[in-house]
Design a protein around this nucleic acid. Structure first.
Lengths: 150, 150
DNA sequence: CTCTTATTAAGAATAAGTCTTGTTAAGGAG
DNA sequence: CTCCTTAACAAGACTTATTCTTAATAAGAG
């Protein structure tokens, strides 16, 4: 009969990496699995992650100024990117569905929604509060401004 | 004294392209300006667009599965990406600021918000309504699924 | 065990975006 | 007008995430 998808070691390793890492990029997944599976190739990581995303097992998240990231948390939620350290946080909205309410879409039929926040994560704002403001200002500016321009 | 930024022909041409094109990528801007200014280089387009984004003259928008796009509309608004044709539409929300209200941020201090909708644009849904469903189903699937995987 | 076929490893290919270097030109001073 | 300083530029090399190609491998059915 028609070939069914197979649950290979490679797929299991990639999925496990997603549960251990925090919103990793494909490259971060590759580096993680490469330790335990030295022959697992970069191309396989991209292909497997793409497959997971296509069938809804994981979410592919594209954030401003960053490579694609993969999230195994399926419940609807937004993301926050820290302007200082770049970390991605999950942010849950009480009424995610309501965002599109009363939107002036001019005929566009909405069927999905992604929300990205920017700001400063808990750890960085605590560090800033106890000094080191200069250091964080630098990183903030670096991450906030265009990269090529000073 | 210190050199002031200059308003050069190149910058003017790039900005004009943004007003004529609809949410273009940097490459689309380059192709547009290249007609009237054959010597205006790719690097300059990227640098100028980055500069505009850094000082807030334009918005840089990164949407799922697409290169960075540039938007000269400064009023806060969301974007909708058509799953069939890929077009980007502006979508205005009546209360953009309210989105972060009651968000469970766990210490993340929000200072900015981007909203991306997916769906089907007016033109495509009209075309689908008068037949051609097969054709559009194909494009929809192509654009929705991972690219590498079938 | 054997066959079919999905899956993989390896690495070449693509393309967005960045960076470097030598050149040009805007605009102020004389 | 001419000279000088420096922002801005063109050209093209470079980087790197992602995709594609091809030949080899290994699930899983029979």
């Amino acid at each position: 009969m028609a070939g069914a998808p197979r649950n290979t070691k490679q797929k299991q390793a990639v999925y496990e990496a997603l549960t251990c890492l925090d919103h990793p990029t494909a490259t971060q997944v590759y580096e993680y699995v490469h330790v335990g599976h030295p022959t697992l190739s970069r191309g396989t990581v991209f292909r497997v992650l793409g497959g997971f995303a296509a069938n809804g097992q994981v979410r592919r998240v594209t954030l401003e100024g960053s490579d694609a990231r993969f999230d195994h948390t399926l419940a609807p939620h937004a993301h926050g990117m820290c302007r200082v350290c770049g970390r991605i946080c999950d942010i849950f909205l009480p009424d995610y569905e309501a965002i599109a309410k009363d939107a002036r879409t001019d005929g566009f039929e909405i069927d999905g929604c992604e929300v990205e926040f920017t700001g400063i994560c808990k750890e960085c704002s605590e560090k800033m509060r106890r000094g080191a403001k200069e250091e964080y200002k630098e990183k903030y500016d670096e991450r906030t401004q265009g990269k090529q321009d000073a």
